[in-house]
Write a protein that binds this DNA or RNA. Structure first.
Lengths: 156, 156
DNA sequence: TTTAATTCCTATCTGGTCAATGGGATTAGA
DNA sequence: TCTAATCCCATTGACCAGATAGGAATTAAA
């Protein structure tokens, strides 16, 4: 299950995507999406550190996506906030960690199953961008190129 | 991510499946799978309450699967110990719960994506039984019938 | 009948993490 | 200078996961 933090992050990112490049204040997002303002502040900071959003300070400040919505996937956001998609670290691509209790990982039956599972989730979440989720069938040419290609972005 | 508890449960169930119907002592499973014995005791109690295993007390006691290995899926075990497969309760079939902060669930973009994701994981985990995981292509006739059918067992 | 080995039951501890809040420093536009 | 925003730091409270302890109940073999 995702943490509350991560759910809020996803909602905020979708909210920003709807603003189509424009800037939004934390308090506006918080109100619209029913998220505690102070909590959302902290979450936006994480998203910024992860380079998924950019910010402007002072009056008229706010947050905006740092990339077009068709270049930001759900998988990316979830990994930034909550970490691995896989059900066990030993089945993860991006957050791999060996199981202490497992003698021979390559022979582990459980691991094989969980790798299958993680590949299926990753396929969905790395394919789905903020843009596609919003129903926009408008995929930028750049995005199309990237996602068809075997670039590291599509790797789970 | 799965809890440690759930990982241990899965390993124990695979261990029991290898015993092909035979009984195993907690201490033996614990040693073989590198699981703290007392902790495993508690986990086996959960599995028993969930009717996935049966037990015999006293000397020569132990645990065994309560059904043939090709009638026990990974999804079933995970749901019993950790709960929902879905990333959010509102995207779950078996543990559905509404999001407090969501005004109109049917219009929620996020939910739609997460339902897709959960369906993919569920497909893998509800299809994979202890038997298939162990590489046994031997599926009992009963199992084949059940899994082909639209019985509640295959429902996510 | 004793003994040994097992499951079973209840209670407890400890550390860590999540969710959220508070208070103020910094920045920038009007 | 005033206002309104992001930013930074610290902390709180609640909760739960992981694990352990000690012993009661049960059963079969010796």
């Amino acid at each position: 299950m995702l943490s509350q933090r991560c759910k809020y992050a996803l909602k905020a990112m979708v909210d920003l995507a709807r603003a189509s490049g424009g800037s939004r204040r934390v308090s506006d997002i918080a109100e619209q999406e029913n998220i505690p303002r102070k909590f959302l502040e902290a979450i936006m900071a994480d998203l910024k550190k992860g380079l998924l959003v950019a910010s402007a300070r002072g009056k008229l400040g706010g947050y905006r996506l740092s990339r077009p919505p068709d270049l930001i996937t759900f998988g990316e956001i979830i990994r930034l906030i909550d970490g691995p998609l896989a059900l066990l670290p030993c089945a993860s691509q991006n957050f791999y960690r060996r199981c202490e209790d497992c003698e021979d990982e390559t022979a582990c039956v459980l691991r094989r199953v969980l790798i299958d599972a993680r590949n299926e989730v990753a396929a969905v979440l790395d394919r789905t961008t903020l843009a596609t989720a919003l129903g926009g069938s408008s995929q930028s040419q750049f995005a199309a190129a990237v996602l068809t290609d075997k670039s590291p972005i599509s790797a789970g």
